[in-house]
Design a protein around this nucleic acid. Structure first.
Length: 267
DNA sequence: ACTCAGGTATCCT
DNA sequence: AGGATACCTGAG
């Protein structure tokens, strides 16, 4: 089904923003997303017009929320004006959106992400999905549930290249599997600091990973994950410190602008 | 062959 | 509380 957006919406920017690992370009202007147990092919038809290969029912139920279509990102982007570096980052990130991704998938994906390159993260995640996720079609697999991971032999899981993160993932899978309301309970925590603290109780989840889970899984747009790229950008452009008050409650969106633009310019 | 990767747990002081 | 160090493995 065809959709035209007034607001910021760029497939390449979103796919390259590092927030998602199963959102990839498969051909020029064609992207594939595997999320929430579904495969979605999106074709860019022209300026801000896209063809989504899904039913209107799935679009309403899944993808509308996934792409956060009720939030106006261009107004957040246009609010950037105090600092030349930030303005440049925002300008290069036209089309950025913060996706609503699956919480469990975010937990595992960002535990895997530590000390790995983005291509290596993607490889590990795809192997894990193929190994124990539900088959969606001939070539695509859903992200495995905690139970599916726990039901898989350890030696098989180790073949996904998880390394020292495997015990973390198993421990977290046990934790989530033993409390079916785990994420519902966390969702109700309104205070960001308290949520961060709770997320960090999972083994293998520190400040950075917890911030990513909160931003990309819980859609808490004020979280500002600090990875190596962000730290380099901040050291270079904000030696006196970054003022998190200016862009409240959208620090997470600003972080994505910096990550996308700075990494593209320096890698 | 060799370095480094979207960090964190653990062990120090 | 804050700093140093080890850590699986793959991609370039």
């Amino acid at each position: 089904m065809k959709k035209t957006f007034e607001d910021d919406f760029n497939l390449s920017v979103i796919a390259e923003s590092g927030q998602c690992f199963r959102f990839n370009r498969i051909e020029k202007d064609i992207y594939k997303v595997v999320a929430h147990g579904k495969v979605l092919i999106i074709k860019e038809m022209g300026k801000n017009t896209f063809d989504f290969d899904c039913t209107s029912d799935d679009f309403k139920k899944i993808w509308h929320k996934y792409f956060d279509l009720d939030t106006n990102y261009s107004s957040i982007r246009k609010s950037v004006k105090d600092n030349a570096f930030l303005c440049a980052c925002a300008e290069q990130s036209v089309g950025m959106r913060i996706l609503n991704q699956d919480k469990w998938e975010m937990v595992v994906s960002f535990i895997i992400s530590q000390r790995k390159s983005i291509p290596a993260i993607k490889t590990s995640i795809e192997r894990l999905c193929e190994l124990c996720g539900d088959k969606i079609d001939d070539e695509n697999y859903a992200f495995p549930t905690p139970m599916q991971i726990l039901a898989t032999p350890i030696n098989k899981l180790a073949e996904c290249g998880l390394g020292y993160r495997l015990p973390y993932i198993l421990e977290v899978a046990e934790k989530v599997n033993s409390d079916l309301n785990y994420f519902k309970t966390l969702e109700k925590i309104n205070d960001d600091e308290k949520l961060l603290e709770e997320l960090k109780k999972m083994k293998g989840v520190g400040d950075k990973v917890a911030s990513c889970i909160a931003l990309f899984g819980f859609h808490r747009l004020n979280f500002f994950p600090k990875d190596v790229w962000i730290n380099r950008a901040l050291a270079e452009h904000f030696p006196k410190g970054f003022d998190y008050k200016i862009y409240e409650p959208y620090n997470g969106v600003i972080q994505q602008y910096i990550f996308y633009a700075y990494r593209n310019a320096n890698r």
